[in-house]
Design a protein around this nucleic acid. Sequence first.
DNA 1: AAGTAGAAGGTCAGGAAAGGTCAATAAATG
DNA 2: CATTTATTGACCTTTCCTGACCTTCTACTT
Lengths: 155, 155
Amino acid sequence: MGNLADRIEEYLKRILEQTSEGYIMLQRSELAGVFSCVPSQINYVLDTRFTVERGYLVESRRGGGGYLRIVRLELGLEGQYQQVMRQLIGEQLSRDRLNGLMERLVNEELVTLREAALIKSILSGDALSGEFRDWDVLRARLMKNILTTLSREDL
Amino acid sequence: MGNLADRIEEYLKRILEQTSEGYIMLQRSELAGVFSCVPSQINYVLDTRFTVERGYLVESRRGGGGYLRIVRLELGLEGQYQQVMRQLIGEQLSRDRLNGLMERLVNEELVTLREAALIKSILSGDALSGEFRDWDVLRARLMKNILTTLSREDL
DNA sequence: AAGTAGAAGGTCAGGAAAGGTCAATAAATG
DNA sequence: CATTTATTGACCTTTCCTGACCTTCTACTT
């Protein structure tokens, strides 16, 4: 584990643990400076190590005063939210199964009633019937996205 | 958020909150003086941060005794906000305008941070790029749908 | 009333300051 | 030796900042 990418990874995870906000902000070029490497190396580390699957979310902004923001997802809830849900959702998600899922999420108090109504209003697709190739596949993808968002530690 | 534009934005929002009239009046060159920048920088900030989507209106007058006037638009609590929003959204809704709208809804405390993140995660379309014919049109339709849902009394 | 000088604010193009992408190469691994 | 993983550098996009030049308004002069 002595290579550059691994060291940058460790470094980021260490300061990420020390913070209480659930996220850190930094500048790509600055970090590259610390490790004396090209800036794009940072992207490599972020792309390979700080993925959603591993429990992280990365946001950024370009231009003057730009930044990178690495958000940690709640590992505690990840069991409930992500692993279980992902398996449950699979590649496709029918309207009925969506409703079942939402009910369960509300019962377990992982989402509020309002949030549930919101999600259903979008994913039930009344407003959009006929727009998509395969609505069930889309619904599954969106639902995973939603769960990932809801497990952000900074919300 | 250390860059100039962000600082000017904060400054303006702060004095805008402290006033009771709902608007502020100031001179472009004077403000530019406060931040030691060129006057056109002020226009940049106004154009990018104080848009209608975000709930602001900017009026101005040239010539001797000219001024800038920034008006904060409140969304009436009476559910008329839906109409306002519908008009604002129109037939198409770009990502940038969506973000502006969401910021406003959060500011007005009509949606929570979580709800905002949720909506953005779906409508920003990262997960679905290439799926749709016209994503801006879709985004507008979905957003209207969402607002309708959120204005339900029983949630 | 007409003209004009000065005092605002407006526009736009260009450059600088971030971060992003991709393909070529090098290193490690099996 | 083959394949995956890491590293680099050239080039791109987005966001910000500045300065030159333009338009509008007021006030004053004639």
